[in-house]
Amino acid sequence: MDSLPLSTGLLALFRSLLTRELAVAIRSPGQWLNPILFFIIVITLFPLGVGPGPNTLSIIAPGIIWVSALLSVMLSLQSLFYDDLHNGSLEQFVLSAQPLSVVVLAKVFAWWILGGLPLLLVSPLLAILMHLPASAIPVLVLSLLLGTLTLILVGAIGAALTATVGNGGGILMSLLVLPLTVPVLIFGSGAVQAAALQMPAGGHLSLLVALLALALSLAPVATAAALRVAVSAS
Protein backbone atom coordinates (compact mmCIF):
# COMPACT_ATOMS: atom_id res chain seq x y z
CA MET A 1 0.00 0.00 0.00
CA ASP A 2 1.24 3.46 -0.81
CA SER A 3 -0.36 5.01 2.24
CA LEU A 4 1.25 7.16 4.92
CA PRO A 5 3.31 5.60 7.69
CA LEU A 6 1.03 3.74 10.01
CA SER A 7 1.09 6.09 13.00
CA THR A 8 0.51 9.27 10.98
CA GLY A 9 -2.24 7.52 9.06
CA LEU A 10 -3.98 6.46 12.25
CA LEU A 11 -3.67 9.93 13.73
CA ALA A 12 -5.22 11.47 10.62
CA LEU A 13 -7.98 8.88 10.77
CA PHE A 14 -8.57 9.61 14.44
CA ARG A 15 -8.80 13.31 13.70
CA SER A 16 -11.33 12.90 10.88
CA LEU A 17 -13.43 10.51 12.96
CA LEU A 18 -13.38 13.02 15.80
CA THR A 19 -14.44 15.83 13.46
CA ARG A 20 -17.24 13.63 12.16
CA GLU A 21 -18.56 12.88 15.65
CA LEU A 22 -18.42 16.53 16.67
CA ALA A 23 -20.15 17.60 13.45
CA VAL A 24 -22.94 15.08 14.08
CA ALA A 25 -23.34 16.22 17.67
CA ILE A 26 -23.43 19.93 16.90
CA ARG A 27 -26.29 19.28 14.47
CA SER A 28 -28.34 17.52 17.16
CA PRO A 29 -27.81 19.61 20.30
CA GLY A 30 -30.12 17.51 22.47
CA GLN A 31 -27.45 14.86 22.53
CA TRP A 32 -25.01 16.91 24.57
CA LEU A 33 -27.34 19.48 26.13
CA ASN A 34 -29.67 17.02 27.86
CA PRO A 35 -27.07 15.19 29.97
CA ILE A 36 -25.70 18.41 31.41
CA LEU A 37 -29.21 19.65 32.24
CA PHE A 38 -29.91 16.29 33.86
CA PHE A 39 -26.74 16.65 35.94
CA ILE A 40 -27.75 20.10 37.20
CA ILE A 41 -31.37 19.15 37.91
CA VAL A 42 -30.53 15.96 39.82
CA ILE A 43 -28.14 17.85 42.06
CA THR A 44 -30.66 20.58 42.81
CA LEU A 45 -33.14 17.88 43.86
CA PHE A 46 -30.97 16.82 46.81
CA PRO A 47 -31.26 19.97 48.94
CA LEU A 48 -35.01 19.72 48.35
CA GLY A 49 -35.06 16.12 49.48
CA VAL A 50 -32.51 16.20 52.28
CA GLY A 51 -33.04 19.71 53.59
CA PRO A 52 -31.05 22.88 53.00
CA GLY A 53 -28.76 22.71 56.06
CA PRO A 54 -25.28 23.76 54.87
CA ASN A 55 -23.57 21.25 57.17
CA THR A 56 -25.47 18.23 55.87
CA LEU A 57 -25.09 19.38 52.30
CA SER A 58 -21.35 19.92 52.50
CA ILE A 59 -20.90 16.43 53.95
CA ILE A 60 -22.87 14.68 51.22
CA ALA A 61 -21.81 17.03 48.39
CA PRO A 62 -18.86 14.98 47.02
CA GLY A 63 -20.95 11.82 46.83
CA ILE A 64 -23.97 13.59 45.35
CA ILE A 65 -22.00 15.36 42.66
CA TRP A 66 -20.12 12.21 41.76
CA VAL A 67 -23.16 9.93 41.64
CA SER A 68 -25.01 12.48 39.51
CA ALA A 69 -22.06 12.73 37.14
CA LEU A 70 -21.99 8.93 36.91
CA LEU A 71 -25.70 8.71 36.09
CA SER A 72 -25.60 11.55 33.62
CA VAL A 73 -22.71 9.94 31.73
CA MET A 74 -24.48 6.55 31.70
CA LEU A 75 -27.74 8.03 30.44
CA SER A 76 -26.06 9.87 27.60
CA LEU A 77 -23.95 6.88 26.59
CA GLN A 78 -26.92 4.68 25.73
CA SER A 79 -27.04 6.08 22.23
CA LEU A 80 -23.29 6.08 21.61
CA PHE A 81 -23.47 3.45 18.86
CA TYR A 82 -27.19 3.52 18.07
CA ASP A 83 -27.14 5.72 14.96
CA ASP A 84 -24.05 4.13 13.47
CA LEU A 85 -25.42 0.65 13.98
CA HIS A 86 -28.74 1.45 12.37
CA ASN A 87 -27.53 3.43 9.38
CA GLY A 88 -24.89 0.85 8.50
CA SER A 89 -21.83 3.01 9.30
CA LEU A 90 -20.72 0.60 11.99
CA GLU A 91 -20.77 -2.24 9.49
CA GLN A 92 -18.49 -0.18 7.25
CA PHE A 93 -16.15 0.46 10.18
CA VAL A 94 -16.03 -3.23 11.07
CA LEU A 95 -15.35 -4.22 7.46
CA SER A 96 -12.63 -1.65 6.89
CA ALA A 97 -8.95 -2.46 7.22
CA GLN A 98 -8.55 0.26 9.87
CA PRO A 99 -8.37 -0.83 13.50
CA LEU A 100 -11.80 -0.68 15.09
CA SER A 101 -10.35 0.45 18.41
CA VAL A 102 -9.30 3.75 16.81
CA VAL A 103 -12.93 4.31 15.82
CA VAL A 104 -13.94 3.52 19.40
CA LEU A 105 -11.36 5.90 20.86
CA ALA A 106 -12.46 8.70 18.56
CA LYS A 107 -16.10 8.23 19.50
CA VAL A 108 -15.27 8.04 23.19
CA PHE A 109 -13.16 11.16 23.05
CA ALA A 110 -15.80 13.09 21.11
CA TRP A 111 -18.39 11.96 23.64
CA TRP A 112 -16.17 13.14 26.46
CA ILE A 113 -15.82 16.59 24.89
CA LEU A 114 -19.62 16.80 24.61
CA GLY A 115 -20.77 14.90 27.68
CA GLY A 116 -17.84 15.06 30.09
CA LEU A 117 -16.30 18.47 29.62
CA PRO A 118 -19.53 20.40 30.31
CA LEU A 119 -19.84 18.54 33.62
CA LEU A 120 -16.42 19.80 34.64
CA LEU A 121 -17.32 23.32 33.64
CA VAL A 122 -20.52 23.53 35.68
CA SER A 123 -19.22 21.52 38.64
CA PRO A 124 -17.71 24.54 40.51
CA LEU A 125 -21.09 26.22 40.37
CA LEU A 126 -22.83 23.14 41.74
CA ALA A 127 -20.14 22.81 44.41
CA ILE A 128 -21.07 26.27 45.64
CA LEU A 129 -24.77 25.39 45.64
CA MET A 130 -23.93 22.32 47.73
CA HIS A 131 -21.76 24.31 50.17
CA LEU A 132 -18.65 22.36 49.33
CA PRO A 133 -15.59 24.20 50.76
CA ALA A 134 -13.97 26.32 48.07
CA SER A 135 -10.64 24.62 48.70
CA ALA A 136 -12.06 21.33 47.40
CA ILE A 137 -13.23 22.74 44.07
CA PRO A 138 -9.96 22.28 42.12
CA VAL A 139 -9.77 18.67 43.28
CA LEU A 140 -13.42 18.17 42.29
CA VAL A 141 -12.74 19.40 38.77
CA LEU A 142 -9.57 17.36 38.48
CA SER A 143 -11.25 14.19 39.76
CA LEU A 144 -14.12 14.67 37.31
CA LEU A 145 -11.65 15.21 34.47
CA LEU A 146 -9.93 11.88 35.17
CA GLY A 147 -13.04 10.04 36.24
CA THR A 148 -15.45 10.96 33.44
CA LEU A 149 -12.96 9.77 30.81
CA THR A 150 -12.71 6.39 32.55
CA LEU A 151 -16.49 6.23 32.95
CA ILE A 152 -17.06 6.85 29.26
CA LEU A 153 -14.43 4.27 28.30
CA VAL A 154 -16.05 1.62 30.52
CA GLY A 155 -19.55 2.73 29.57
CA ALA A 156 -18.70 2.32 25.90
CA ILE A 157 -18.27 -1.42 26.50
CA GLY A 158 -21.79 -1.57 27.89
CA ALA A 159 -23.19 0.60 25.09
CA ALA A 160 -21.62 -1.73 22.53
CA LEU A 161 -22.87 -4.88 24.28
CA THR A 162 -26.44 -3.58 24.43
CA ALA A 163 -26.46 -1.81 21.04
CA THR A 164 -28.70 -4.45 19.48
CA VAL A 165 -31.13 -4.60 22.40
CA GLY A 166 -34.15 -2.55 21.40
CA ASN A 167 -36.46 -1.39 24.14
CA GLY A 168 -34.91 -1.24 27.57
CA GLY A 169 -31.36 -1.33 26.22
CA GLY A 170 -30.51 1.80 28.16
CA ILE A 171 -31.50 0.52 31.57
CA LEU A 172 -29.79 -2.81 30.81
CA MET A 173 -26.61 -0.95 29.92
CA SER A 174 -26.66 0.80 33.29
CA LEU A 175 -27.20 -2.55 35.03
CA LEU A 176 -24.11 -3.96 33.38
CA VAL A 177 -21.86 -0.97 33.74
CA LEU A 178 -22.71 0.62 37.09
CA PRO A 179 -21.16 -2.15 39.25
CA LEU A 180 -18.00 -1.85 37.18
CA THR A 181 -17.77 1.89 37.82
CA VAL A 182 -17.67 1.55 41.61
CA PRO A 183 -13.88 2.06 41.82
CA VAL A 184 -14.12 5.35 39.93
CA LEU A 185 -16.88 6.51 42.22
CA ILE A 186 -14.95 5.54 45.35
CA PHE A 187 -11.72 7.25 44.39
CA GLY A 188 -13.41 10.23 42.73
CA SER A 189 -15.65 11.15 45.61
CA GLY A 190 -12.93 10.08 48.04
CA ALA A 191 -10.58 12.65 46.56
CA VAL A 192 -13.15 15.40 46.97
CA GLN A 193 -13.97 14.35 50.53
CA ALA A 194 -10.30 14.35 51.43
CA ALA A 195 -9.86 17.80 49.96
CA ALA A 196 -12.94 19.09 51.79
CA LEU A 197 -11.39 17.89 55.08
CA GLN A 198 -8.11 19.67 54.22
CA MET A 199 -6.39 16.32 53.74
CA PRO A 200 -4.11 15.40 50.82
CA ALA A 201 -6.03 13.99 47.85
CA GLY A 202 -2.99 12.90 45.86
CA GLY A 203 -3.41 9.21 46.63
CA HIS A 204 -6.97 9.13 45.34
CA LEU A 205 -6.09 11.13 42.28
CA SER A 206 -3.17 8.93 41.35
CA LEU A 207 -5.41 5.88 41.66
CA LEU A 208 -7.85 7.60 39.31
CA VAL A 209 -4.96 8.07 36.87
CA ALA A 210 -4.15 4.36 37.18
CA LEU A 211 -7.77 3.42 36.48
CA LEU A 212 -7.80 5.72 33.46
CA ALA A 213 -4.61 4.15 32.10
CA LEU A 214 -6.05 0.68 32.53
CA ALA A 215 -9.35 1.64 30.92
CA LEU A 216 -7.57 3.35 28.02
CA SER A 217 -5.59 0.24 27.23
CA LEU A 218 -8.28 -2.42 27.69
CA ALA A 219 -11.71 -0.87 27.16
CA PRO A 220 -11.34 -0.03 23.43
CA VAL A 221 -10.40 -3.65 22.71
CA ALA A 222 -13.42 -5.00 24.58
CA THR A 223 -15.69 -2.40 22.96
CA ALA A 224 -14.40 -3.28 19.51
CA ALA A 225 -15.07 -6.98 20.15
CA ALA A 226 -18.58 -6.16 21.34
CA LEU A 227 -19.21 -4.02 18.26
CA ARG A 228 -18.24 -6.89 15.97
CA VAL A 229 -20.84 -8.99 17.76
CA ALA A 230 -23.44 -6.23 17.44
CA VAL A 231 -22.80 -5.85 13.71
CA SER A 232 -22.99 -9.57 13.10
CA ALA A 233 -26.40 -9.64 14.76
CA SER A 234 -27.96 -6.60 13.14
Binding site: A23, S28, D84, N87, G88, S234
Partner: peptide, 10 residues
Protein backbone atom coordinates in the same frame (compact mmCIF):
# COMPACT_ATOMS: atom_id res chain seq x y z
CA UNK B 1 -25.12 -3.39 2.48
CA UNK B 2 -28.80 -3.38 3.04
CA UNK B 3 -28.16 -0.34 5.24
CA UNK B 4 -26.16 2.06 3.10
CA UNK B 5 -23.73 3.36 5.74
CA UNK B 6 -24.69 6.98 5.18
CA UNK B 7 -25.08 9.09 8.31
CA UNK B 8 -28.24 11.22 8.15
CA UNK B 9 -26.66 14.18 9.90
CA UNK B 10 -23.64 14.42 7.62
Amino acid sequence: GHRPGVHAQL
